[in-house]
Amino acid sequence: MATVKFKYKGEEKEVDISKIKKVWRVGKMISFTWDEGGGKTGRGAVSEKDAPKELLQMLEKQ
């Protein structure tokens, strides 16, 4: 499965696309949330040019 790689608060992170729940556009950035388990929700953002095609497809479906 595809993953999204991004930096959050200076830390490199990687999230499996299948865990992503919500995707939206903020200017030229793609923001998203995912389920971290245990009732926690993670947040992240990646530039439109660095976003994997699967993430962009999720954005178009909404």
Rank of each mutant, 00 (worst) to 15 (best):
K28S: 06
L56S: 10
K40V: 13
M1Y: 10
S18P: 04
T41G: 14
G10I: 01
R43C: 15
G27I: 05
E11N: 10
V23M: 11
Q57D: 09
M29I: 08
Q57W: 11
D35N: 14
K9L: 05
E12R: 03
R25M: 14
K22P: 01
E14K: 03
K40Y: 15
A45T: 13
L55M: 08
S18V: 11
G37K: 08
K5C: 03
G39Y: 10
V15G: 01
K28L: 08
G10N: 04
R25G: 06
G39P: 13
G10L: 02
I17K: 02
K49P: 11
A51F: 03
V46E: 01
G42T: 05
F6V: 04
D50Q: 14
K61N: 10
E36Y: 07
V46M: 11
M58E: 11
D16R: 05
K5G: 01
D35P: 12
I20M: 13
K9Y: 09
G42R: 13
A45V: 14
M29V: 13
D16V: 12
E14C: 05
K13Y: 12
R25Q: 06
R43D: 04
K40M: 12
K13E: 02
F6A: 02
G10M: 02
S18M: 13
K53G: 14
K49H: 04
A45I: 05
E36I: 09
S18C: 13
E14H: 05
T33Q: 08
K22R: 13
V15E: 02
R43S: 09
G37N: 06
Q62N: 10
E48C: 15
K49F: 09
A2Y: 04
L59F: 05
E36F: 13
L55F: 05
F32L: 05
Y8K: 02
S31C: 13
K22H: 15
K7Q: 05
E48G: 05
K22Y: 15
A51G: 11
E54S: 07
E48M: 05
V26F: 07
I20H: 00
K9N: 09
E12C: 13
D50G: 07
T41K: 11
L59Q: 05
E60L: 10
E54P: 06
T33R: 15
I17S: 03
D16T: 07
T41C: 15
K19Q: 10
I30L: 12
E54Y: 04
E48P: 10
F6D: 01
D35H: 12
K7P: 05
V23D: 00
W24F: 06
A51Y: 02
S47R: 06
K19T: 09
G39S: 14
D50T: 08
L56P: 02
I20T: 02
A2I: 12
V23K: 01
F32D: 00
K9C: 15
W34G: 00
V15H: 01
K13P: 00
L55W: 03
D35F: 06
K7L: 11
P52F: 02
E14Y: 04
R43T: 15
S47E: 15
T3S: 05
V4A: 01
T33A: 08
E12Q: 08
K9S: 03
A2T: 14
Y8F: 04
S31G: 06
V23I: 05
W24E: 03
D16F: 12
K49S: 05
W34P: 00
E60R: 04
L59C: 13
S18L: 14
M1P: 05
A51H: 02
M58N: 04
G27L: 13
Y8W: 13
R43L: 14
F32E: 00
D50V: 06
D50H: 12
E36A: 07
R25K: 10
M58I: 11
E36D: 12
E60P: 10
G38L: 09
A51W: 04
E14V: 09
V15W: 00
T3H: 03
V46K: 02
G44A: 14
G44I: 07
D16C: 08
K61I: 14
V26P: 03
M1G: 11
M1Q: 15
T3K: 10
G10S: 03
K49A: 13
A45P: 01
R25N: 05
K61G: 13
A51R: 01
I17V: 15
V15K: 01
T3M: 08
K28D: 10
Y8P: 01
K53V: 12
E60Y: 10
A2W: 02
K28Q: 09
L56K: 12
S31H: 09
L59Y: 10
K28E: 07
K61S: 13
V15A: 03
P52E: 03
L56D: 03
K53D: 07
T41M: 15
L56C: 14
E12G: 03
K9Q: 11
V26K: 10
A51K: 01
I20Y: 00
A51P: 04
P52Y: 02
R25P: 03
E60S: 12
L56F: 13
T41W: 15
K22S: 15
P52K: 02
D50S: 11
D35V: 06
M29H: 13
K5V: 04
V15D: 00
G37L: 13
L59E: 11
K19M: 14
D50E: 09
Y8L: 02
V15S: 01
K13A: 03
G10Q: 02
V26L: 08
E54I: 04
G42K: 09
T3V: 09
G42L: 14
E60D: 07
M1A: 08
